[in-house]
């Protein structure tokens, strides 16, 4: 928590906005991947979707920890 607060103080306005932008995009990608996973046929493509979901979720968590 203390680390989080400290990072918050370092964030610039434009920086914060861009981080928001990134999380928004990743969230929509994550949801799309999640929805598409239920209709995909090829197992290899499903693996790619799962990977996308994993990476997106982790990335969103990391950025969210930086944001106020």
């Amino acid at each position: 928590m203390a680390k989080k607060d400290k990072l918050d103080l370092d964030l610039g306005v434009h920086e914060t906005l861009e981080l928001h932008e990134v999380t928004t995009l990743r969230r929509s990608t994550l949801l799309k991947a999640h929805m598409m996973e239920s209709i995909v046929e090829d197992p290899e493509l499903r693996k790619l979707l799962r990977k996308e979901k994993q990476v997106s979720e982790k990335a969103i968590d990391e950025i969210e920890a930086l944001l106020p």
Partner: peptide, 14 residues
């Protein structure tokens, strides 16, 4: 989006 965000970054951690 990441490339754009990086050009607005100040904090080294971010």
């Amino acid at each position: 989006a990441y490339a754009v965000a990086l050009t607005e970054t100040i904090s080294p951690e971010v």
